[in-house]
Design a protein around this nucleic acid. Structure first.
Length: 614
RNA sequence: GGUCCCGUGGAGCAGCUAGGAGUGCUCGUCACCCUGUCAAGGUGAAGGUCGCGGGUUCAAAUCCCGUCGGGACCGCCA
């Protein structure tokens, strides 16, 4: 090694030792006769004292240097108790520049770089990662994956890699496609998840599989979405839902303990899907604050007010909301319309008189008005927002309003870690056409998800009420992961396909290889997948998963550092076979794949139902 | 596919609502001074097609249209 010690590890006990350090010039404090350098390496930084000013002149910020000198305690009164290395300094004998640095495109020091343009950060990501927040996030990520691997090994799980060049299967999202030079006109797809492979590994008898797997989905971006992202993928045989939840709990408990020192009380609370929707208007409720929804369908039964003559009426309270200006209240209408709602009805309760006012109040009877505040738990000075219409859509609107109220009112306990399992998801949800008429059913999770014991006999006769053995783990209103127990019985699987309008032929064409495998004694199995990027983003308090990825992409899928994606040359295009047309050579299997490709192009519900979720 | 926000010396901002000379702030860069700082301090200097194109106007960073880039959200997506 070029160095003998790591800069950030030096302490008073090292005084008297001659050390050689290698790293970067983080800061320079030049006093003429004496100069202080903060020498930074991956372990931290230490103050280096240079007496000869000439040599110091060539030591600019972010120069890469090697320095030799003696560690000594700082002169009395010069200690810096705020720094880990603040008791000592290194009095330098020699400093050598290993490589100079050009003037920086942005400051590396944290206090000077709080809000650098993200495009600039991505273009110079190698400098961005020299900054403390990014370096800390990547270390945290590495620590988290290490802990995860330990837990999985302890529980007897086997790390198995699955292909990233695979066949296009009709899953939920758009595929990224790769042309195949050796078979012009055919394409690989990058996997949206290892879902089908991990089920094959269960048929293969490995019993316990896990993988920290890269997944690819060609959909529009969000703060918590990238085209390639990482899942902790888990599957086990001969298990029931309890077994998988226990593994999931062991993982998050160990990760939070080992990375943050936080004890997560186990078992995690559980909430049924319908309860989550009723109380929070979300299948991933943020339990860090209250403001639960109140259902008013019964309360307003018989009302003259047309808007509230609906299958569902509900409300959420905004504390202090009566103080909002007319303009602010109008802004809520625009906010609701942006979410596809007609608007967001409201009543404000006068802080002085307790009188209910607002456009909606005029339409309500005296009896309905007088009991309303008590019914929804509102006080004078509050505002009450209403949604009326179809149950799920109205609850979702109120749920979104609740989150907005929590943010604006600073009601959210930011330091809390509120985990929960959401269980008993519906097995199917209705497919609606543009007019809102139901045209069929599609699998909420994926078509291999097992019904609950209670729904086993009836799920195909009454899909709307069927519940499945699917579960999500939720933290602070973010879905950390989800999974299900899979169907392993052929007759049940066929009924599930029928329920979503998928014929045997179509199922064969889309999942033939999996169904074939299921002919050979498939064990009962189930699993879960965690979004590792989201998990680490929550651990580090990052606003976006880009801040926990070394080299993420921008919203249009670009990488400002490498310039990817780029056009290809005519020669590359020809060689890759991008434009080649597939010519069937008579192989039965090839034909079925080609048919599959055509099926995928259609917008039929069946293709959507292939959503292979973990 | 839709809605909204941002783009001003190397970095981060202000200026735009109400058009009037590239004006200002913090940091960085360069030169010089300085022997105990730790976000060191001081003096001075350099550095700009106001993202790009068009329009309105006597006059545009500022108003209008388009476009490109970045970001947030809806749709979409585990």
């Amino acid at each position: 090694m070029i160095r003998t010690h790591e800069a950030g590890t030096l302490r008073a006990s090292d005084a008297g030792t001659t050390v050689t350090l290698a790293g970067w010039v983080a800061r320079r404090r030049d006093h003429g006769g004496v100069t202080f350098l903060d020498l930074r390496d991956a372990s931290g930084f230490v103050q280096v004292v240079v007496r000869e000013s000439e040599s110091v002149h060539d030591l600019r910020n972010e120069y890469c240097v090697v320095a030799t000198g003696e560690v000594r305690e700082r002169p009395g009164g010069n200690e810096n108790p705020d720094l880990p290395t603040g008791a000592i300094e290194v009095v330098v004998d020699t400093v050598e520049v290993l490589s100079p640095a050009a003037p920086l495109p942005f400051p590396i020091e944290e206090h000077k770089s709080s809000n650098i343009n993200e495009e600039m950060r991505l273009k110079y990501r190698y400098l961005d990662i020299r900054r403390e927040p990014m370096a800390r996030a990547l270390r945290m990520r590495s620590k988290a994956t290490k802990v995860i691997r330990d837990v999985m090994e302890e529980h007897g799980f086997l790390d198995v890699e699955t292909p990233t060049l695979t066949r296009s299967t009709p899953e939920g999202a758009r595929d990224f496609l790769v042309p195949v030079r050796l078979q012009p006109g055919t394409w690989y797809a990058l996997p949206q998840s290892p879902q089908l492979f991990k089920q094959l590994l269960m048929v293969a008898g490995l019993e316990r599989y896990y993988q920290i797997a890269r997944c690819y989905r060609d959909e529009d971006f969000r703060a918590d979405r990238q085209p390639e992202f990482t899942q902790l993928d888990v599957e086990a045989s001969f298990v029931d839902q309890e077994d998988i939840l226990k593994v999931g709990e062991a993982i998050v408990a160990a990760v939070w303990k080992e990375t943050l020192g936080v004890e997560i009380p186990l078992p995690l609370p559980r909430m049924k899907y319908h309860e989550a929707m009723d109380r929070y208007g979300s299948d991933k409720p943020d339990l860090r604050f209250g403001q639960e929804l109140t259902e008013l369908t019964e309360y307003f039964a018989g009302t003259e007010f047309r808007v509230f003559q609906a299958p569902y009426v509900g409300a959420v309270v905004m504390p202090g909301g009566a103080a909002q200006t007319r303009k602010e209240l109008d802004a809520w209408q625009d906010w609701a319309k942006a979410r596809g709602a007609r608007g967001l009805a409201y009543v404000v309760i006068d802080a002085e008189t307790g009188e209910l006012r607002g456009p909606v109040a005029k339409n309500l009877s005296e009896a309905h008005l007088s009991g309303l505040a008590d019914k929804v738990g509102a006080k004078p000075g509050d505002a009450v927002f209403f949604a009326a219409g179809k149950r799920a859509a109205s609850q979702e609107l109120l749920g979104a309003a609740r989150l907005e109220i929590g943010k604006r009112g600073e009601l959210i306990e930011e330091s809390a870690w509120k985990f929960l399992w959401v269980v008993d998801f519906p097995m199917f949800e209705p497919i609606e056409d543009a007019a809102g008429e139901q045209t069929g059913w599609h699998a909420v999770h994926h078509p291999f998800t097992a019904p609950t014991a209670e729904s086993l006999d009836t799920f195909d006769k009454d899909p709307g009420s069927a519940l499945s053995n699917a579960y999500d783990i939720v933290l602070n209103g973010t879905e950390l992961g989800g999974g299900s127990i899979r169907i392993h019985r052929k007759d049940v699987q066929e009924r599930a396909f029928t329920a979503i309008g998928l014929s045997q032929q179509e199922a064969q064409s889309q999942f033939g290889f999996l169904l074939e495998a299921f002919n050979y004694g498939p064990p009962p199995h189930g699993g879960i997948a965690f979004g590792l990027d989201r998990l680490v983003a929550l651990l580090t308090g990052a606003d976006t998963i880009r801040d926990v990825m070394a080299f993420p992409k921008t919203a249009t899928g670009g990488d400002p550092l490498t310039g990817a994606p780029t056009p290809i040359t005519a020669a590359q295009r020809k060689e890759a076979g991008v434009d080649a047309v597939f010519e069937p050579k008579g192989g039965q299997d090839k034909n079925s794949q080609d048919k599959n490709a055509q099926d995928k192009g259609g917008k039929d519900a069946a293709a959507k139902d292939g959503a292979a979720r973990a």
